[in-house]
Design a protein around this nucleic acid. Structure first.
Length: 102
DNA sequence: CCACTGACTACTT
DNA sequence: CAAGTAGCCAGTG
């Protein structure tokens, strides 16, 4: 297990409720600014064994990239339940909800 | 061990 | 502003 991977897990687990984070942001905090795609893999692989709050992860545009029947609905519902707001274009206001570490 | 596969991102057309 | 392209790199089988 690489350090990077562990860090990513840590970061994901430390995202506060009601906040979201981008792939790039997580990768960056984990020490690999260019590893956005690896974050994706980690979420897929690790969330199966560990129970990571994958629903707090979104892309750089503040949107969920998943097909609707693949977790999109669940993710949106969970986020809204935590207070995150989606605009009329289903985008999240990153200025208010993006978490960049403590 | 090698190849494939990604919920990406930033830049260029 | 939409669409294409090139970096990116480790988990899984």
């Amino acid at each position: 297990m690489e350090e990077f991977t562990k860090n990513v897990i840590e970061v994901i687990k430390s995202i506060p409720k009601g906040k979201v984070c981008t792939y790039g942001g997580i990768a960056s905090m984990a020490g690999r600014p260019t590893g956005a795609r690896q974050v994706t893999r980690i979420i897929h692989s690790m969330s199966r064994k560990h129970d990571l709050p994958w629903f707090r992860i979104i892309n750089a545009k503040g949107m969920i990239s998943l097909p609707e029947m693949r977790g999109y609905n669940q993710q949106k519902a969970l986020l809204e339940a935590e207070g995150v707001v989606f605009d009329d274009k289903d985008r999240i206001d990153l200025k208010r909800f993006l978490w960049m570490g403590s």
